[in-house]
Nucleic acid binder design. Structure first.
Lengths: 256, 256
DNA sequence: TCAACGAGTTCCGATAAATGGAACGACGTT
DNA sequence: AACGTCGTTCCATTTATCGGAACTCGTTGA
């Protein structure tokens, strides 16, 4: 979504382009999306394919390579943060009985690291690894509230605001006010700002000034759970988030 | 597990080193595992961290970055192969009632792409994305049987045989005989060769000479299911694998 | 107190790799 | 048969990578 400097950055920009597209891309399509000369792009793609990061179908369309899967399964299962957070997610889920999400801020996106819900019958993988815009998700806004003014402005400046629903925050000023509000209250609400019919209450994980900016949320469908109920759990979310923050501090500080 | 040529390859070799290790690695640990001068490695790591592919903890230990997760969730959900195979896996599961695995050959490893089992209660992600050696898994051996003699020898030459269990194939000659046997029979068996107490029957997906070499397997614990029962399903596995191969041919050939 | 050590980081000339413009070959279209 | 499109290859130029050495900082031990 952002990168581009350095040889490695260029290569990843190609992966990004492939990942961002809903339809399979052919060489010329990529050429249009990645700002690179033909020869250069061709070689970069070749390298990526050779490394197993990109896969080419028989019709010359590209998809992300399975080697990424191998890396990711590793990243996920060993993630210190996720492992520390997991018991807290489960505990919170037991308290409220609704779906719990764990996500971290990555640039201007939230990447979901874990999810605890009642009906595990849903097909696996759900939205683990999925990315959503930070400005219209509870976890995202909560995480943003940890940033310094400078960091915050830096991120805001690259956001392209888009109205997913009527309640989506529409511009930078709206987001600034929202962040202020979240800092004051200690929790964030997503009032169907990303997906109609879904709202959530969230709290930030991490401390101002430190690199980790993340959050957890309780998510529920509007038709079944009013916002008031959700908001009444603000204390619980905040408490769980604080517990994770503390666990991270304790276990990261003294030693690995 | 292999790469190393080119700037990109070097970078990925670092990721591989981090992924391969069970314990968190610090700078010096990586230095020992990746054959690179200090200055060079330092810059490569910096680049990887900057791109979000690698993450550095406060104690200078490294773990794989969550950005990989984002790529992987994409790679998985959009994978043409996985999507085509999925209904066949479910159908096969309904027939036999045991766990079905889908895996592809990547170098000398099998990477698991999907899994269908009865008790989805198990924590998600299970072993999707996990990698296992090709010479001691049913899927791996089945996939190897599709390779040309030259390709096969190339791969065999880089395998480091290791005895996971008493029945693990111990050397190249043993593997060559096994592959011959699989070609003759049309299916592969894993007689507790990778994990004691677990065996499976598998069949190859793909055609000789084509790039895709994959397989599916029916897996079961020894204590509950004798090998004879498993082997009696060889026809079903083979049939399902053939159906996937055919679907891939049809849907990949005419157009994307 | 000071020297020695190990871990991580920075610097910079030499070197090798990436760059990108242009030409080429393969198809399908008009 | 001439044309446009798409993918691929080539090669002189440019640029980033390489890697040895020096530097910083915290720890250990005499």
């Amino acid at each position: 979504m952002h990168s581009g400097t350095g040889t490695l950055g260029k290569a990843i920009a190609v992966l990004d382009a492939v990942a961002a597209s809903q339809v399979p891309l052919r060489f010329t399509d990529l050429l249009a999306r990645v700002d690179q000369p033909r020869g250069t792009l061709h070689r970069q793609i070749s390298n990526l394919v050779e490394e197993g990061l990109l896969q080419v179908n028989s019709d010359h369309s590209y998809e992300l390579g399975i080697r990424l899967l191998r890396f990711a399964s590793n990243a996920w299962s060993r993630s210190k943060f996720r492992n520390i957070a997991e018991p807290h997610l489960i505990e919170l889920h037991k308290k409220v009985g609704e779906t719990i999400h764990l996500g971290v801020l990555q640039g201007i996106e939230v990447i979901y690291l874990d999810k605890v819900e009642s009906s595990q019958a849903v097909r696996m993988h759900s939205q683990i690894g999925n990315a959503s815009p930070c400005y219209c998700t509870g976890v995202g806004k909560a995480a943003l509230s940890l940033l310094s003014p400078a960091q915050l402005e830096e991120r805001i400046s690259v956001i392209e605001f888009r109205n997913y629903t009527p309640t989506t925050i529409a511009d930078a000023d709206g987001l600034r006010r929202e962040i202020e509000d979240i800092r004051a209250k200690g929790y964030a609400l997503d009032r169907e700002e990303h997906e109609a019919g879904i709202h959530c209450v969230a709290a930030a994980i991490g401390s101002p000034g430190e690199p980790l900016a993340a959050g957890i949320s309780i998510t529920a469908p509007v038709y079944r759970l009013p916002l008031e109920t959700l908001e009444s759990w603000a204390g619980e979310v905040h408490q769980a988030a604080a517990a994770i923050t503390e666990d991270m501090r304790v276990r990261a500080g003294p030693r690995g």
